[in-house]
């Protein structure tokens, strides 16, 4: 039989053990609460990072130049049918073919509005916009783009021409080639620099409304798009050779029911040169 003193000691020991157990339990709970808090905080940071990353180069992160280009191109092409490399109604009587290099600063001058000045300090003529508005939108002509390498050959990145032109063609498989072309012309970098990075090309693709980005990425691997470049290039060189200026970009060939115009290589003296050619063949 335990003495009264022993009983007291046992009771005290039991109380201490209970207190220790309670303290340990409280500590475990606190640790788990901190663990949960850390997980919650990490999830918030991850979700925020994903939200920023998924935005890519959409409007929030766009520069003023990109915003202006997107607004301009969207309004220029809105409602005009596109198929592959063709802008406009397929049965339009006149075909205006542009042989172009998306890095070419003169093509850029032809394609961009007067409000745009390219890195070579050349102001846009707005002539291609005018052709689109006056002839393509009205169904009188269709505009066809074909690739021809000129300025890209001075890009330190030897793959740039293939990458950018195929990127445009891949957009064409979704009826968005002209969006890509116009967006690149309106956000061109300086000739001879390697600004045509993967990020740059993907950024342009992300600016195109309704483009299926995943599909576009997959289509860029199609061998036939790359093969088309050499076919286009040979046709462009052949077309330009008959010109007094020799082959070059942009080369504009206008074909209609009455025949085909002489190629217009480079920039003519004025927009009227295109109008005269259209009138001659149409």
């Amino acid at each position: 039989m335990a003495s009264r003193k022993e009983q007291k000691e046992q009771a005290r020991a039991a109380r201490l053990a209970q207190e220790q157990q309670a303290a340990e339990q409280a500590q475990r709970t606190r640790r788990l609460q901190i663990f949960g808090g850390v997980i919650a905080l990490a999830v918030v940071v991850i979700v925020a990072a994903i939200a920023i990353s998924s935005g890519g180069s959409t409007h929030k992160g766009q520069s003023a130049v990109a915003k202006a280009a997107v607004a301009h191109v969207n309004s220029l092409l809105a409602g005009i049918p596109q198929s592959g490399n063709t802008l406009g109604k397929p049965n339009a009587p006149i075909t205006i073919t542009e042989y172009g290099d998306l890095e070419c600063s003169i093509c850029d001058e032809l394609a961009t509005p007067a409000s745009f000045t390219n890195p070579e300090s050349q102001q846009g003529t707005g002539w291609e916009d005018k052709l689109i508005t006056e002839y393509v939108r009205t169904g009188k002509a269709k505009l066809v783009f074909r690739s021809m390498e000129t300025a890209s050959s001075s890009n330190p990145d030897a793959n740039a021409f293939t990458q950018q032109q195929v990127a445009a063609e891949a957009a064409g498989l979704q009826g968005k080639e002209w969006n890509f072309i116009e967006l690149m012309y309106n956000q061109q970098g300086a000739e001879g620099t390697n600004y045509v990075s993967e990020s740059y090309l993907q950024g342009l693709a992300k600016e195109i409304p309704g483009l299926n980005f995943k599909q576009w990425m997959a289509d860029r691997k199609l061998a036939r798009l790359k093969n088309q470049l050499s076919v286009d290039n040979a046709a462009g060189v052949a077309a330009g050779q008959s010109s007094p200026n020799g082959a070059g970009t942009p080369t504009i060939v206008i074909k209609g029911p009455l025949g085909q115009s002489a190629p217009i290589v480079g920039l003519p003296n004025g927009y009227g040169a295109y109008v005269s050619a259209i009138n001659r063949v149409g």
């Binding site: 990072a49 920023i52 990353s53 890519g56 180069s57 992160g61 990075s197 993967e198 990020s199 993907q202 950024g203 992300k206």
Partner: peptide, 8 residues
């Protein structure tokens, strides 16, 4: 070098 290679 893709658009996902940078965050802000």
């Amino acid at each position: 070098t893709s658009v996902y290679s940078k965050l802000a």
